[in-house]
Nucleic acid binder design. Structure first.
Length: 186
DNA sequence: CACAGGATATACT
DNA sequence: GTATATCCTGTGA
């Protein structure tokens, strides 16, 4: 995957790609795009210690703490100095199922990675992985083998710029954090 | 379905 | 320093 492009080009192409961390993970079925001019983005108010990775080279992981409890994984896009990232919100588990079950403390496959906090817990991603490159261990990313039907929707859990259709999901997937509501085929 | 838990980071005085 | 908002989830009704 070439991340040195607009986040709005990259995000829909990530649906169907395979993301692994230390050998466990799955197919990406849900993402959201955040760019620098976007009031809902951490980068909107400029560079801070927390969001610095978003302003660095593309193709790296931006991991932040959410609601004090969960970790969330973002993939940095564009070029150095322009901050944008794709929030990875859900995976269809394909690799390391037992390992992910034990880290999550539950058996049900559908709940292993269906949410940004859940998938970080399942894969074992934490703040110490912030800034790591996505193209070598512990990360591995494989482009989708063929195009996938992608629906767009409004983003989840934000209070500003809620009207932007920057959530992308695989049409009909049962592993989404929430079903697409008023969606449109992308 | 409503809701509290929980810890950062940033905004505000 | 104090306040506030948060790219969420499990639990219990």
């Amino acid at each position: 995957m070439n991340f040195a492009r607009s986040v709005h080009e990259v995000a829909p192409e990530l649906i169907g790609a395979t993301l692994l961390f230390n050998g466990s993970g799955g197919r990406i079925v849900e993402v959201e795009a955040y760019d620098q001019s976007d009031p809902a983005s951490h980068a909107f108010r400029g560079r801070t210690p927390r969001n610095a990775v978003m302003f660095g080279p593309p193709g790296h992981a931006y991991v932040y703490r959410s609601y004090g409890i969960h970790w969330c994984l973002n993939l940095v896009c564009e070029e150095v100095g322009v901050a944008s990232a794709v929030l990875v919100r859900a995976l269809e588990p394909t690799h390391g199922l037992d390992e992910m079950r034990s880290r999550r403390g539950l058996d049900e496959e559908r709940l292993l990675c269906s949410g940004p906090g859940r998938l970080c817990q399942a894969l074992g991603i934490t703040g110490t992985d912030n800034g790591l490159p996505l193209d070598r261990p512990p990360f591995a990313l494989r482009d989708r083998p063929q195009p996938v039907d992608v629906d767009t929707d409004r983003r989840i859990g934000i209070s500003r710029a809620t009207e932007l259709p920057w959530r992308y999901v695989e049409a009909g997937s049962r592993f989404l954090s929430r079903p697409a509501s008023s969606s449109r085929r992308a």
